[in-house]
C-alpha cells in the first residue's frame, strides 16, 4: 500500500498520530504538499463523506476523522502556502441569528474543508448583515446558512433579501432540521441540501 493510501486509511479510522507521522514521512519521501493533501488527506475525508451520506459512519466517526485531517493539514500548511496551493474557493458559513445550534454547521465545515474549500465560519447566532459583510470581505461564492428552529428559519430570508438587494454574486445554500426544498424555494435561496456531504458536493460544482 502506498504511503498516501495508508494516510487515507488512517484518517478514516481517526488515527491522528498516525496521520501526522505519515504526513511527515511523505514530505521526507519527496511527495509534493498538493499530492499529500489531495491524494492522502482529502481522499480519506472524501471516503468518510460518502460513507456518512450512506449511513455507514456517523457523526462521531466524522468528527474524529476530521480531527486527524486537521492535524495533517496543520503540518502541511507552511508547505502549502510556500508552494502556492490554493483552496478551491471560499464559502461563508454560519447558524442564523437567534439560533445557537452548531453540530450541523460544524459538519458542513468539515465536509467543505474535506473538499479543499476555504471555510469562513462565522459561528452561531449570526445576524444577516454579518453574512453579507463576510461574503464581500472574502469574495465568497457561496453563503451557507443553517437553522434548527422553526422560529429562526425566517432569518434565512433576510440573508437572501439582503444579498439580492446588494446584487451580490453569491449563491445562498440553506439547511437544518426544519428546512426543506420547498421552504428554500419560497425564500428565494439557490439551493437546499439535507446533509453536509451533499452540501459540499454541491459547493464543489459552484467552483468548477
Amino acid at each position: 500500500m502506498s504511503i498516501l493510501n495508508e494516510m487515507s486509511e488512517a484518517l478514516q479510522k481517526g488515527k491522528k498520530k498516525e496521520v501526522e507521522e505519515l504526513v511527515t514521512k511523505a514530505v521526507g519521501e519527496g511527495f509534493t504538499p498538493k499530492q499529500i493533501l489531495e491524494e492522502g488527506l482529502l481522499a480519506g475525508m472524501n471516503i468518510i463523506g460518502t460513507r456518512f451520506k450512506a449511513n455507514e459512519v456517523y457523526v462521531p466517526e466524522v468528527l474524529v476523522a476530521a480531527r486527524a485531517m486537521n492535524a495533517g493539514i496543520a503540518l502541511l500548511k507552511p508547505l502549502l502556502v510556500s508552494s502556492g496551493v490554493q483552496p478551491l474557493g471560499t464559502i461563508i458559513l454560519g447558524t442564523v441569528e437567534g439560533d445557537l445550534h452548531d453540530i450541523g454547521k460544524n459538519l458542513v465545515k468539515i465536509m467543505m474543508e474535506g473538499k479543499g474549500i476555504n471555510v469562513v465560519d462565522l459561528g452561531v447566532d449570526v445576524p444577516a448583515d454579518r453574512f453579507i459583510e463576510a461574503a464581500k470581505e472574502h469574495d465568497a461564492k457561496i453563503i451557507c446558512a443553517s437553522s434548527l428552529l422553526t422560529t429562526t428559519m425566517m432569518k434565512m430570508k433576510e440573508i437572501v433579501d439582503k444579498a439580492r438587494a446588494e446584487n451580490l454574486s453569491v449563491k445562498i445554500m440553506v439547511g437544518g432540521a426544519p428546512v426543506n426544498e420547498e421552504f428554500a424555494k419560497s425564500i428565494g435561496a439557490d439551493m437546499y441540501k439535507d446533509d453536509a456531504a451533499s452540501a459540499a458536493d454541491y459547493a464543489v460544482t459552484c467552483f468548477q
Binding site: G98, L100, H101, D102, I103, L149, T152
Partner: peptide
C-alpha cells in the same frame, strides 16, 4: 444560557 436555543457543545 437564557436563550431559547442552545448548542450541544456549550
Amino acid at each position: 444560557g437564557a436563550k431559547h436555543s442552545k448548542s450541544l457543545n456549550e
